[in-house]
């Protein structure tokens, strides 16, 4: 039958929720706030997990942490891969945000490997548009001063 071209619409007909913990953290990033979660022992996890990895405890309390923090570990990448968050040499960093007891894995936009050291202070550079996604943190940058 001429002209009868069937069309198909392929979709997942459901909406996916990230749940009360991951969802709240990423919604916080959309609002340019970093939320952590405090365990019964007083340890603040950032990013928050749905349970305390030490005890398995689930009833945790929200707390807001800083946008700046300290580099606790790093790896310098001279030649970024196409999918890496930055297209110029950068460092993978473990950042302990002010008020947090754990490290966030992200990237640091620094001039050179020599400009990165353990203990240096860094600050979040927000994406120009935030959407509730890990990439709302565009990267970290050395704290001015």
């Amino acid at each position: 039958m001429a002209g009868a071209v069937p069309t198909y619409k392929l979709e997942f007909p459901y909406k996916r929720s990230l749940g009360p913990i991951v969802g709240a953290f990423l919604t916080g990033l959309r609002d340019r706030q970093v939320l952590g979660i405090r365990s019964a022992a007083g340890r603040v996890l950032v990013p928050p997990l749905e349970f305390d990895p030490e005890t398995g405890e689930e009833n945790l309390e929200w707390t807001r942490v800083g946008e700046a923090g300290v580099v606790r570990g790093f790896s310098w990448v001279e030649e970024p891969l196409p999918k890496h968050p930055l297209d110029r040499p950068f460092a993978w960093v473990l950042v302990q945000l002010d008020g947090a007891d754990t490290n966030l894995v992200h990237v640091l936009d620094a001039d050179s490997r020599a400009a990165v050291e353990i203990g240096m202070r860094v600050r979040i550079r927000w994406a120009s548009e935030t959407r509730g996604h890990m990439s709302d943190i565009a990267c970290f940058e050395p704290e001015a001063g």
Partner: peptide
């Protein structure tokens, strides 16, 4: 898939973070 994978931290770079932690 929410905290790590969106950053595409390749397996060599993740290993490098561990290596750096050990050396330090």
């Amino acid at each position: 898939p929410y905290y790590l994978m969106p950053l595409w931290p390749d397996y060599i770079s993740l290993a490098a973070l561990q290596a750096q932690a050990l050396l330090a």
